[in-house]
Amino acid sequence: MENKPKHYFYVLQCADKTFYGGYTTDASRRLKEHNSGSGAKYTRPPSRRPAKMIHLESFDTRSDATKAEYAFKQLTRSQKEAYLRKHQSDEI
Rank of each mutant, 00 (worst) to 15 (best):
Y70Q: 15
T66S: 05
H55P: 02
R85G: 02
E69K: 06
D64G: 07
K80G: 07
H34N: 09
Y42P: 10
E57Y: 11
T76L: 08
L75K: 14
S78G: 11
K17Y: 14
R77W: 02
A15G: 01
E2M: 08
R29F: 12
Y8M: 02
S36H: 06
C14H: 04
L31T: 11
G22N: 06
D64A: 12
F59I: 00
N3F: 13
L12Q: 02
A68N: 11
T61H: 07
A51N: 07
N3M: 10
K4I: 13
S78P: 05
H34Y: 11
L12W: 04
D64N: 09
A51G: 10
S58F: 09
E91K: 11
H55D: 02
K80L: 13
Y20I: 01
E2D: 13
G22T: 00
R29T: 12
D16E: 00
R77H: 03
H87A: 14
A65K: 04
S78D: 13
P46T: 06
E57F: 01
S78L: 13
R62Q: 08
Y70M: 12
N3Q: 12
E33I: 07
Y10M: 01
K67H: 10
T76A: 03
R30Q: 14
L84M: 07
V11N: 01
T43L: 04
G37F: 04
K80Y: 08
Y20A: 03
S47C: 13
S78Y: 11
K32A: 15
K80D: 04
A82K: 08
E91M: 11
A15C: 07
S63K: 09
S58T: 08
T76K: 10
R85C: 05
Q13R: 15
F9E: 07
P5K: 12
Y10T: 02
D26R: 13
T61N: 07
K6E: 15
Q74A: 06
Q13N: 14
T43E: 06
G22Y: 02
S47T: 15
Y70C: 15
E33N: 14
R85F: 08
D26I: 12
P5A: 12
I54T: 08
T18R: 10
T25M: 09
Y42D: 06
T66A: 03
A15M: 03
T24F: 10
I92V: 04
K67E: 14
G21L: 05
N35M: 02
H7K: 02
Q79G: 11
M1D: 14
Y83R: 14
P5D: 14
A82W: 01
R48K: 12
K67M: 13
L56E: 02
Q88N: 15
G37C: 05
P50Y: 02
Y83N: 09
E91V: 06
N35T: 03
T43H: 06
S47P: 09
D60P: 08
H87M: 11
H7W: 03
R77V: 03
Q13H: 12
G37H: 04
H7V: 00
P45N: 13
K4L: 11
I92E: 00
M53G: 03
V11H: 04
Y10Q: 00
D60G: 11
T66R: 06
S89V: 00
P50S: 04
K41M: 09
E33W: 07
Y20G: 06
D16R: 05
A40Q: 10
D16I: 05
D64V: 05
F9G: 03
D60N: 14
F19R: 05
D26V: 14
R77D: 01
